[in-house]
């Protein structure tokens, strides 16, 4: 917790330095924020190129917000996640409008680290989870990913999604129920032994 607070303060200090014309602050702040946003967008969209666009757009908005940034009102990382969530939501809606064959369009994870999993069945399981996540309603997927994969606390997720903490808990619970059902339907295929 103390480390989180320190990180938040460092992010805010770097953003202030950037706004004051420090040429190195942008690089330092980008190295702190971009990997997280890129990872989140990749997991939500399942498309690395689109995720890179999202990360670039989030950072551009952050640079533009820097001169009027008021430290203490929002945490930089929370703000960045919130923008990323909104941009991902827009992309997903646009995708859904275009998409005719939903399941076939869900990309396998392009993250090489997942593909490099030695055991093929583990790779299948992660692919199944990715696909099940992709089938969740947008808000549920975002809540589950932020909570269980990004590891954020519920109050921070509530700030990002701009809902109450109870609503976050509800979204996560419903999302996990849907994921459980989706994986249970492929239980044998994924190599899980029957209980």
């Amino acid at each position: 917790m103390a480390k989180d607070l320190q990180n938040f303060a460092e992010d805010a200090a770097l953003l202030t330095a950037y706004a004051n014309g420090d040429p190195d602050a942008a690089r330092d702040l980008a190295h702190r924020i971009v990997p997280r946003i890129l990872g989140y967008a990749t997991r939500i969209l399942g498309d690395r190129a689109e995720a890179e666009d999202i990360a670039q757009e989030v950072m551009l908005r952050l640079w533009r917000a820097a001169p009027t940034w008021r430290a203490g009102e929002a945490q930089v990382s929370t703000w960045a996640y919130r923008v990323a969530v909104n941009l991902c939501t827009d992309r997903l809606r646009a995708k859904k409008r275009r998409r005719s064959d939903a399941l076939d369009d869900v990309a396998e994870p392009e993250d090489g680290r997942i593909a490099a999993v030695d055991c093929m069945i583990e790779a299948d399981r992660h692919a199944a989870l990715t696909r099940a996540l992709a089938d969740l309603p947008d808000r549920q997927r975002q809540a589950v990913v932020l909570r269980h994969i990004e590891g954020l606390a519920n109050p921070e997720i509530a700030a990002i999604l701009q809902v109450g903490v109870e609503a976050v808990e509800s979204l996560i619970a419903r999302g996990k129920r849907a994921l459980t059902a989706a994986l249970a339907a492929r239980r044998t295929e994924l190599g899980y032994e029957e209980a």
Partner: peptide
């Protein structure tokens, strides 16, 4: 690209 954006819009 991100750093180029930053340099372009930096006050």
């Amino acid at each position: 690209r991100i750093l180029a954006d930053a340099a372009r819009v930096q006050p």
